[in-house]
Nucleic acid binder design. Structure first.
Lengths: 337, 337
DNA sequence: CTGAAAGCGCTTACAG
DNA sequence: CTGAAAGCGCTTACAG
C-alpha cells in the first residue's frame, strides 16, 4: 500500500507538499498540485486514517453498544445512528452486549482503546458507579433508553407515560381486569412502564392486583410464559398490557393455541411499535417509540459535544405515541363478571 | 488521557520497559513489573490501538457492508459476524449501502482508508470490474450472498435449489397454476431463485407462463403490488412463490384484504426464514437460509486469510432448507379450472 | 510557494 | 534485565 512518501517521490516534491494538497491547506502551485494528483492517482494512494488519527486525535468513528441487533427494536435505532453518523463523515462500530454488564464494560474498554470519538450506550443496566469513570473521559458518552443522575448525555422516552397511555386506552375501551406482563425487573424502562400502568388504574379507581402482574423478559418466550400463567388464574384477565411487542406476540400465540379470540375474549396491547406488530393477526395496538430518531439524536448530541457547541449535559425525554389497532378494539359494555 | 510516557515517568522506567510489560514480551524483573502495573492502574492507562496499529499494521477491525440493517434478513447475519469477530478480538464497523453501488464504493474506500483488516460485502450488485481493484489489496474481502469469477472469497446459498424446493413443494401439494414474485431483476439471488422455479415447473412438464412472473423488490410493498397484479389476471394463480418472506407478507395482506383465504384459495411460500414468517397468520412456509452461520463463516474466512492458513480463494455454497408451515398445506385434488 | 524537522504514541531491534 | 534510537505514516509549525 502506497504511502505519502511514495507519492512525494513520484511527484518529485516533499511530503509536506503532498500533505498540503491532500488537505487543501496552505498554498501550492497549480502545476505542483497537478503533479501530486497524478502521482496519487497512479499509485492509487489512500491516506491512512490511522496515521492521521494519531496526530489529529480523531478517528471519525463512534461506538454503538446495544443489547442485541437481532432484537427487532434495535436495527431501527442503529440505522438512525448510522445514517446520521455517515452524513457527518463518521463510521459506527457495532457491539452486542446481550444486556450483560460484563460485556458492556469489555466493549467500553475496547472502544476506548480504539479511541473512538464517542460512544452510544443503549439500554445499559450498569450501575451509576461503574458508569462514572467514563464521564468527562476522552470520548463523550450518550446513554440511550435509560437515564442517569450523572453528568452525561441521555435520551429516553417517557416510559411511564407510555405505560399510562396503553393502560388508559384499555380502560377507555371498557376493559377492567387488566393484566401486565412486565419487562425484566432490572430494566428501568420496564419499571417505568409498570408505574404508568399503576397510575392509570389508580386514575380509574381500580386497585392494583399483583396476581395480574407477572415478570417477563422482553422476549417472545417470556410473553408466552406470562400469558400461560395468566390463563391459569381462577379469574382470568380480560386484557393484557405487554411490556413490549415481542412479548405481546408470544402472548398472542398462546391465546390462539388456547382457542381464545383477540380482542373478543382478551384484548392485547404491546409496546415499541416494531414492524412485526403490524403483521400479526389481529394487528397489534402498541405504543410507538421514536426509535430511529433516538439513534439520530444520539449522534447529534455527540457531535455537538465534539464541536463544543454544547457544553452542558442534556437529558432528553421523548414522548411515545399510542397506536390503536385491532387487538384492543372497543367493548360495548363493562364486563363485571 | 495518559500515554506510555506518563506511565514510564511515574514508574521510573523507560517506555521500552512499559511496552514489554504491556505485551508480556522479553524479560522484565518482577519488581519493575509491579511498579509499572501500579503506574498503569494509577493513571488508568489504556494503550492506544491507533498508535499500535500504526506500527503493527493491524486494526483488529472488520468492515461489514450490508444493504439495510432494518431489513430483518440482515441482523442475524450481522450478529453471526459480530459474535465470531468478538471471539477473535475484532470489532465490526457497520455500513448500510441500501443496495446502492455508489454507497458501496464510498464505504469500501472509507474502510480501506481506516485500514480495516478485512471487509465483508453483503449482497453487492457491483460489477466484477469495479470489484477487481479490491482484490489482493491490503485487506481480504469476502462476498456474501453473491458469487464472483474473481479471485476473492465468496459465500452464498444455493438459490436455484431454494427456488426449486419451494416450487416443487407447491407442485407436490397439487398446486398447478403457480406464480412467482421475484426479487429485483438485478439481484443475482433473485435470478437464481427464478431459475429454480422454472426448473421445478419443467420437471413437472409445465410450461413457463410469463404472465405469472412479476418483478418485486424484496420489500413488503413490492409483494403487495405483485399480488394485486396477479389478482387482476383473468386466470388467477392458485399459489404464489414469493422471492422472500417480506414480499410474502405483503402478498398475504393483499389476499386478506381481498377476502381470500390462505392456503385454501391461494397458497403462499416465502424465502429466507426470517422470524416474522413464524408469526404471521397463517404461518408462512419458507426456505430457510443459514443466515447466522454465513456471518460466522465470513469472519472465519477472513481470519484464515489473515493468518495465512488459507491461501486459496474459497467459494462456499450452503444449502437452504424448505420449512413447510401452514400457508401451503396440501390440497386433496388438482384444481383444473 | 516549498521543504526540513519535530512530534503524535506506540513497538522493535540493538546495545549494554 | 533495561534503555536509547529508529520508525510506522501522517500533520503542523517554522524557515526560507
Amino acid at each position: 500500500m502506497a504511502t505519502i512518501k511514495d507519492v512525494a517521490k513520484l511527484a518529485g516534491v516533499s511530503v509536506s507538499t503532498v500533505s498540503r494538497v491532500l488537505n487543501a491547506s496552505g498554498y501550492v502551485e497549480k502545476n505542483t498540485e497537478a503533479k501530486v494528483m497524478a502521482a496519487i492517482k497512479q499509485l492509487n494512494y489512500q491516506p491512512s486514517q490511522i496515521a492521521r488519527g494519531l496526530v489529529s486525535k480523531k478517528t471519525k468513528t463512534f461506538g454503538l453498544i446495544l443489547p442485541d441487533i437481532t432484537n427487532p427494536f434495535f436495527p431501527e435505532l442503529a440505522r438512525g445512528a448510522e445514517d446520521e453518523a455517515g452524513k457527518q463523515g463518521y463510521n459506527i462500530m457495532l457491539c452486542n452486549s446481550d444486556w450483560d454488564v460484563a460485556k458492556e464494560k469489555m466493549y467500553l474498554n475496547l472502544l476506548s482503546e480504539k479511541r473512538v470519538d464517542g460512544i452510544i450506550l443503549v439500554g445499559s443496566r450498569m450501575h451509576e458507579q461503574y458508569l462514572a469513570p467514563w464521564i468527562n473521559d476522552a470520548a463523550p458518552v450518550v446513554l440511550l433508553d435509560r437515564t442517569s443522575q450523572l453528568d452525561i448525555h441521555s435520551i429516553c422516552t417517557n416510559n411511564k407515560l407510555g405505560g399510562f397511555l396503553a393502560t388508559k386506552h384499555l380502560l377507555e375501551q371498557n376493559y377492567r381486569r387488566i393484566a401486565h406482563i412486565t419487562g425484566p425487573a432490572t430494566s428501568p424502562s420496564a419499571q417505568q412502564r409498570l408505574l404508568g400502568y399503576q397510575k392509570a388504574l389508580e386514575e380509574y379507581g381500580l386497585s392494583l392486583d399483583m396476581t395480574l402482574v407477572c415478570e417477563g423478559d422482553f422476549r417472545i418466550s417470556g410473553g408466552a410464559t406470562g400469558m400461560r400463567r395468566l390463563l391459569s388464574l381462577k379469574n382470568v384477565p380480560d386484557a393484557v398490557f405487554c411490556g413490549n411487542d415481542l412479548m405481546a406476540v408470544g402472548a398472542l400465540e398462546v391465546l390462539q393455541e388456547a382457542g381464545l379470540k383477540v380482542p373478543e375474549d382478551i384484548a392485547l396491547v404491546g409496546y415499541d411499535g416494531i414492524d412485526l406488530s403490524k403483521y400479526v393477526h389481529p394487528k397489534l395496538t402498541t405504543v410507538i417509540q421514536p426509535t430511529y430518531e433516538m439513534g439520530v439524536m444520539a449522534v447529534q448530541l455527540i457531535i455537538e459535544s465534539l464541536t463544543g457547541q454544547n457544553t452542558v449535559y442534556r437529558h432528553l425525554e421523548l414522548d411515545p405515541i399510542l397506536k390503536v389497532r385491532d387487538s384492543s378494539i372497543r367493548r360495548k359494555t363493562i364486563d363485571n363478571s
